[in-house]
């Protein structure tokens, strides 16, 4: 990819915090999904996606995030987003994600639930 893209994850209590850096398109979205799947395979079902360092998410990227939301619903878990730039908050709102996933200002708030 022509831009920096990075996914890191850490555990915080029952939550897995996945932090994403860079433009989320189809390929980047797949990498986030891979990380997510690794943790669900280990039995985790509560996730926080920290998008502080993500400038844009395209529609295909969002469709992959929707896949993750659906999976957490199946697992009776949860998906929350934090640290969204206004453009990303607007994208999620337009695409209806905010009805299915909580949005927090900070990671600390997201982990506090």
């Amino acid at each position: 990819m022509s831009e920096v893209f990075k996914v890191t994850a850490r555990q915080a209590g029952k939550f897995i915090v996945i932090a994403v850096e860079g433009y989320i398109n189809n390929l980047a979205g797949e990498k986030v999904l891979d990380e997510f799947n690794r943790w669900t395979a280990e039995g985790y079902r509560h996730f926080v996606l920290n998008l502080e360092k993500t400038q844009l998410v395209n529609s295909i990227g969002v469709s992959i995030l929707i896949e993750m939301i659906e999976k957490t619903q199946e697992l009776n878990g949860s998906m929350a987003f934090c640290c969204l730039l206004p453009i990303i908050a607007k994208t999620f709102k337009i695409m209806g994600l905010t009805q299915y996933a909580r949005v927090y200002e900070t990671e600390a708030e997201a982990i506090a639930g």
Partner: peptide, 18 residues
Amino acid sequence: NVRPLQRRGYGRVLMESL
């Protein structure tokens, strides 16, 4: 038509909103 949690079909809706 755009339904909640549908996977694809948001591009035009996004462009029109933005």
